[in-house]
Computed example of a mutant assay.
Amino acid sequence: MIQVEGLTKYYGEHVAIRDLAFTISKGEVIGFLGLNGAGKTTTLKILGCVLLPTSGRVVIDGYDAVRDPHEVRKRIGFLPDTPPLYDEMTVGEYLAFVAQLRGVPPNETRARVTEAEEKTALREVDGALISTLSHGYRQRVGVAQALVHRPAFLILDEPTSGLDPAQIRGMRELIRNLKGTHTVLVSSHILPEISETCDRLLIVHNGQLVAQGAEEELARKLGGGSIEVEVRGEKAKAVAALEGVGPVSVAYEDNGVVGLHVEASPELRPRVAQAVVGAGLELLRLDRGAQRLESIFLRLTQTSGAGARAPEVAS
């Protein structure tokens, strides 16, 4: 569906992205991660035919984004970080207007608007002025305008921004339901949402792609990992016993049973067992823990000073 080769963008003498290269298959849901200023928004705007690249090539559904931008725009839905809304319109009027701009036939417009509103839980505010909506509803209208023409490729820049927990859960379900029917690229700072909704990750740092792959694959490439421990006994004694193996955090405590997370290689499990028994605690469970997305992201984007780079694990 998407092929990106050597994508570079300069703003004057400043390079925002440099030599990005990746492919996205039809029906995939991809998470796009990076710190502020890493080049995420620039990349999304180029994919959305809002910006021209300085060099490189972007092909979407067989069409070159520079040579055939109008054909590409027909096939994409784009939610920018600030939704493009018209406050003087009602939700239904606005979505019908967007559908017409996107080439939806007039006899299909109402059905497409209804479909987009149902997917984003907006039916109840179809007749409400956009200016009267809360931030959460405005965000959902932004998603609906990106969906109304049934695009093959959907770009969502911070789709859960400003949503409450219930709305975030609904957005997560929406993105999951889009999988297969649409190809989706999601940029978000809410790492658990990326972890739960995306098939693969693209991670950029200082304008360059530093990693791509499934979360589990990146964890294996980076090494490290964690150990999950459950013991019966005093929490303070358990933490003190395990700090000699690696950084320790308490996951839960219930009726004398303590769950702990140790940031250490799973190969150190024998040392963990010895530390627990040596401290006079009862060992109830000892498992290999999955490396968390937050840990993966921080390791890939950490810098120790000017010009420092994250470890390269891009395939």
Rank of each mutant, 00 (worst) to 15 (best):
S161F: 04
T114P: 00
G136I: 06
A111Y: 07
P159D: 11
N107I: 00
V91D: 04
S134W: 06
D126V: 07
L147K: 02
A166M: 11
Q139V: 02
V148W: 06
A152H: 06
Q139N: 12
T109R: 15
V148K: 04
V125W: 04
E108G: 02
L133V: 03
G162E: 02
P106Y: 10
H135L: 14
L163G: 00
G136D: 12
Q100G: 13
T160H: 11
P106K: 15
L95A: 04
R138I: 08
V113A: 13
V91L: 06
A144H: 03
G127K: 15
T132C: 05
D157M: 10
L101P: 02
L163E: 02
R102T: 07
E115K: 03
V148S: 09
V91P: 04
A146L: 09
S134N: 07
Y94T: 12
P105Q: 06
G136Y: 06
E118A: 05
P106W: 01
P159C: 15
G127Q: 06
L133W: 11
E115H: 10
D126M: 08
G136P: 00
G142D: 02
R123W: 08
G127W: 14
L129T: 02
I130H: 01
S161C: 00
L122K: 04
A121T: 02
Q100T: 11
L156Q: 01
L163D: 00
V143W: 07
R138D: 03
A111D: 13
G142N: 02
I155E: 05
L154V: 07
A166G: 02
A166F: 03
E108W: 10
L147Q: 11
P151S: 14
A116P: 09
V104S: 14
E93G: 05
Q139S: 05
L156M: 07
E158I: 03
V113N: 01
Q167I: 04
A152G: 04
T132P: 14
R140A: 08
V143P: 01
E158W: 06
I130D: 02
F97Y: 14
Q167M: 12
E93D: 07
G127F: 10
R110I: 01
G142Q: 05
P165N: 14
H135M: 07
R110L: 01
D126Q: 11
